[in-house]
């Protein structure tokens, strides 16, 4: 497996992922990003550069937050339909798009404890376009069934659910989620990977498109925006990340 080679390709994996997620959110009204999500934050900032009427919220970044009613306002906004996109991740993600942010193994005495579910159990139901993002693509992350469902990928028909997972972005692939059959479908493999390699690293089965294509490489314009204005803004949201930034200079 090779993936992106910065020397050959002229961009890094992180830049590719930010750009892919930026493309998926361009043109939306209000994109929100949770804490600890530097690449989704870069994506939202890029989407705003590409569609200037887009409103963005980056939790934990005073410069990118316009809420004035405390920690609950984001959630109240989501329930009212005032958010269009949000990013979630998982310690485990399964083929039905269930995500686990709590623990591996037993709940009471787990083999491995993650920080917690945060807003996922709620926002997954209410934000129309949820993008699942996990850079690492391995069978350890992408499992058949998660050990703990922090937030369910699908719901019975009688459950009020205007939102849900729409895409999954990793270092190896972009997938789309179809809530009908409750299954992922491969959209593109990332540059430098094959579908065979992807299948080997994925613990669940997914549907295939008629023809397997590769994610279009970042354009010069996208890279310039990411390395210029987006990066300048990102410093305010993620000082440590920006200091040790793994986006190319």
């Amino acid at each position: 497996m090779s993936g992106v080679d910065p020397a050959r390709d002229g961009y890094t994996t992180e830049e590719l992922l930010a750009i892919v997620m930026g493309r998926l959110t361009t043109g939306l009204g209000h994109i929100a990003v949770g804490a600890l999500s530097p690449l989704p934050a870069a994506a939202a900032l890029l989407a705003r550069e590409l569609s200037p009427r887009t409103e963005i919220t980056i939790l934990g970044s005073p410069r990118h937050m316009r809420f004035t009613d405390g920690g609950r306002e984001l959630f109240d906004c989501a329930a009212q339909g005032r958010l269009d996109a949000f990013f979630l991740s998982g310690g485990q993600i399964d083929g039905q798009a269930n995500i686990n942010l709590v623990a591996i193994g037993d709940y009471v005495k787990p083999k491995r404890r993650f920080p917690g579910s945060f807003g996922s159990a709620y926002l997954y139901h209410l934000v129309p376009k949820v993008i699942l993002f996990r850079q690492e693509h391995s069978p350890r992350v992408f499992v058949e069934h998660v050990d703990f469902v922090s937030a369910a990928g699908t719901s019975p028909r009688n459950v009020y659910r205007p939102g849900g997972p729409k895409h999954l972005v990793t270092e190896m692939a972009v997938m789309d989620f179809d809530a009908g059959p409750g299954r992922f479908r491969l959209n593109t493999v990332q540059p430098g990977y094959t579908e065979a390699e992807l299948r080997k690293q994925t613990g669940f089965t997914y549907a295939l498109p008629a023809e397997v294509r590769t994610t279009p490489a970042p354009t010069a314009e996208e890279l310039a925006l990411l390395r210029g204005p987006v990066r300048e803004e990102l410093v305010h949201a993620y000082p440590k990340f920006a200091r040790e930034a793994y986006l190319a200079p």
Binding site: R72, F75, V102, A103, V108, K109, P110, G119, S120
Partner: peptide, 17 residues
Amino acid sequence: VQQGRLTMRDATCPAIH
């Protein structure tokens, strides 16, 4: 938590608010 020494009451952000 991994040692089972802490009683967890996991929630989701908006539930606590």
